[in-house]
């Protein structure tokens, strides 16, 4: 897992969280050997993973991979045929529901209700009293620049405003576990940026976040760990940096002044507009290639060890799995 400095002001939150849990690092979600099928067709097959406080887990996979089934099983909307799910060490109950924030993929709200009334109602269902809910709602509305629209009915709002209201509803009760299904879809760049900041902030405050999305760039930017599902099975699971490192190709991108000649250990080369990719044999390291270039007196303008994007890893894994 990536490490980052924690703002002093948020240390209390995290310490408080762990103290509340009896001082132990309790997994926010633990899924064990989940199996679910619909009319004989397997939706999720022997899926196991966990989410820890203070991390964002990216749940990725193509359409129909089993992401929604997994989320809905965690939320106890559907029962698995086998396997089990625990939230904060227990099955989902009234108390743990209050620690849960969920943003579904397709979003809708009570169209006739004013935004503030809707937020307060849904917050009260999460165990908040009216006064705290109103106070927090006003703070979040202000943060999102929507405080002046708080009495506006949902049907009078733009799609983007409605989505921000839904996001406020998801986090207003300060949940410990947040499940977001395609949260960036339909958001404009300003709100996308705002959401990213909010998610980063939630993680820094010790919240566990499950982020289900198709947008690999968002996953790369935000997630600490990923779970890649294909045809109901986990094809990739673990720390994002470690996964990318594991899938690092055996090649380097080079741009030098002058002509690049033959180099020992290079088995192939591909030319691009502003660089050349050298494919190395199994024994040659990037450092060895760089050393040779410098020894030849080349002026190196760019030297980059090729790292595959998450999308490339995804396509490769899906391809391998299908074979």
């Amino acid at each position: 897992m990536r490490t980052r400095p924690i703002p002093i002001g948020q240390i209390g939150d995290i310490v408080g969280y762990y103290l509340k849990k009896g001082g132990q690092s309790m997994k926010a979600v633990e899924v064990n050997h989940l199996f679910k099928s619909y009319s004989g067709k397997t939706a999720v097959n022997d899926l196991s993973f966990s989410v820890l406080p203070g991390e964002i887990l990216g749940l990725i996979g193509p359409n129909g991979a089993g992401k929604s089934t997994t989320i809905k099983t965690i939320l106890d909307f559907i029962k698995p045929e086998s396997g089990d799910v625990t939230l904060f060490g227990d099955t989902l109950n009234d108390s743990s529901k209050n620690q849960l924030g969920y943003l579904p993929e397709e979003r809708g709200l009570y169209r006739k209700l004013p935004a503030i009334d809707l937020i307060i109602y849904l917050a009260s269902l999460k165990g908040m009293d009216r006064h705290s809910a109103e106070e927090k709602a006003n703070a979040l509305l202000e943060q999102t620049g929507m405080l002046s629209n708080k009495k506006m009915k949902i049907e009078e709002m733009s799609k983007g405003m409605g989505q921000m209201i839904q996001l406020i509803v998801t986090i207003i009760h300060d949940p410990t576990l947040i499940i977001l299904d395609e949260p960036f879809s339909g958001l404009d760049p300003v709100n996308t940026d705002l959401l990213k900041k909010m998610l980063g902030n939630l993680r820094d405050r010790g919240k566990a976040v499950i982020l289900s999305t198709h947008q690999m760039n968002e996953v790369e930017e935000l997630c600490d760990r990923i779970l890649m599902i294909h045809k109901g099975c986990a094809v990739l699971y673990g720390d994002l940096t470690e996964i990318k490192s594991r899938h690092r190709g055996h090649s380097v991108f080079i741009d030098v002044e002058g002509e690049l000649g033959e180099l020992p250990g290079v088995v192939d080369r591909r030319s691009y507009k502003d660089s050349v990719e050298f494919i190395l044999d199994n024994v040659t390291t990037p450092q060895h290639v760089l050393g040779q270039l410098l020894n030849q007196g080349m002026i190196v303008k760019r030297f980059e060890v090729a790292t595959p994007s998450l999308n490339e890893i995804f396509l490769k894994m899906v391809g391998d799995h299908d074979e």
């Binding site: 909307f77 924030g101 579904p104 809708g108 009570y110 849904l122 269902l125 509803v169």
Partner: peptide, 17 residues
């Protein structure tokens, strides 16, 4: 129908049984 079609029902059921 409104709650089902808008998936608001999922938000409600993530809070109550």
């Amino acid at each position: 129908g409104e709650e089902k079609e808008s998936r608001l029902i999922e938000v409600l059921l993530s809070s109550v049984s």
